[in-house]
Design a protein around this nucleic acid. Sequence first.
DNA 1: CGGATGCTTGAAGCTGCTCAAGTGAAGTGG
DNA 2: CCACTTCACTTGAGCAGCTTCAAGCATCCG
Lengths: 240, 240
Amino acid sequence: MTIYPKSRIHGQSEPHFPGDRHRLRRPIDRSDTRLVRRDQHLLQAGAPIAHPWLVVAGMLKSYRLDADGEEQVLDFHVPGDIIGLEAVVQATADHSIIALDTCNVRALPADVSAVDATEAESYTQMIIDGMYQEILRLTRRLNMSVEPTDQRLAGWLLEFSEAQRRRGLKPYEFRLPMRRRDLALYLGLATETLSRAFTRLRNRGLVAVNNYEIRILDAEGLGALAGKDREAAHADQAKG
Amino acid sequence: MTIYPKSRIHGQSEPHFPGDRHRLRRPIDRSDTRLVRRDQHLLQAGAPIAHPWLVVAGMLKSYRLDADGEEQVLDFHVPGDIIGLEAVVQATADHSIIALDTCNVRALPADVSAVDATEAESYTQMIIDGMYQEILRLTRRLNMSVEPTDQRLAGWLLEFSEAQRRRGLKPYEFRLPMRRRDLALYLGLATETLSRAFTRLRNRGLVAVNNYEIRILDAEGLGALAGKDREAAHADQAKG
DNA sequence: CGGATGCTTGAAGCTGCTCAAGTGAAGTGG
DNA sequence: CCACTTCACTTGAGCAGCTTCAAGCATCCG
């Protein structure tokens, strides 16, 4: 896991994260980068995919439609993530990926045995690491899927906060780039349930919520809630 | 995905699957295989892991204990699966793996760049394929986690049936190697809820259940239930 | 045969979903 | 610059499914 240097914050409330670009592991080769604007698709499920992409800036959402046409949000992707990993195995994209804000992505080689994408490690190793990261993420989400609502949201907020910190942004004060609906589908909840969960956390003084602006007031309290066993969480939810 | 040849069934009701051995892609090198008996651990979460393993025979369960000491069943592993993939990335096992019956596993190289494990593909490709399969499995489970109980069980039964078929065993008549509790935790349900779900499927004439012996009576009906959108499934569950 | 283990069934309670209305913010046109 | 529309988030009420607690059975094994 790459630890990004802490640095001055700027562009905090903007829809994209211009501060990220200079933190990349190596300068961008403009020839193989692509700009994706808000609500634009980078990939479509079932469509051909030639190679994986490295997220350079912005945030993307990957999703797919199930048999009923219901949207299932699979993941949010931040700079440093490799997306479209299935390209090294097959020629068809598994899921659709759409930009939540202005994004910058860099094309990666289609051939796993290609030489160095970075100076540090082989491309093969990079792909394997990327896949392993995805396995970890999925496993974590699977664990979360059995937790009660408030615990789920608390855990996710802390994860997001940690991601902010790693990227050199304010960990306790940020703007969510996705709509409630997206976050709800990601967490496996109804939009209304998520909204109520936010309200409960706010009423307990754990977070301050203003639309998409989030401020974490009591990280320790959030952690206690997130890590708590289910009965205790239930008790809290009742009295909260 | 390897398609195993269809062949005569034998050893159907035995706790292990002796018929599998000769279907392996290449003869077993006895020097690096290991026998794991029922309830014996192959790996412990947090303990050192030197290399991945290839499941040769039997079925294993991977799980981990969450903060409360509650068991979370992550996956069941059948012959052909590669387990302990994290070994190519780190030296510590992510989760515990225990044998559900008498199992045979073969040690794989720790170094990704090792030469040929099989004639067909490079070891690197084999690892990448294994990881991709795991990503697909996890994604499928994540999708299932938002489905209602009966739909979840129906879907899983069909998956298991398909796995049986691929391995040359009877697809519509088999013995579950895991306890109800394990299957319930795997599906993210309470044991009682799973039991009731079995009863409902039985009452509808979709399956015949006798303890661990399962017979699929109406695969089409199961498929309709599994693929059905949620409202329709709810309606069915009410009248079922 | 008796004890143990695990599956099944029953009843009650609670969480989260659905349907529905209310509120607030952002953008448009007069 | 301000009404008006729109869209999304919030809040409310009712309902349904799942879990929990508890008891009843079946199967296995000493």
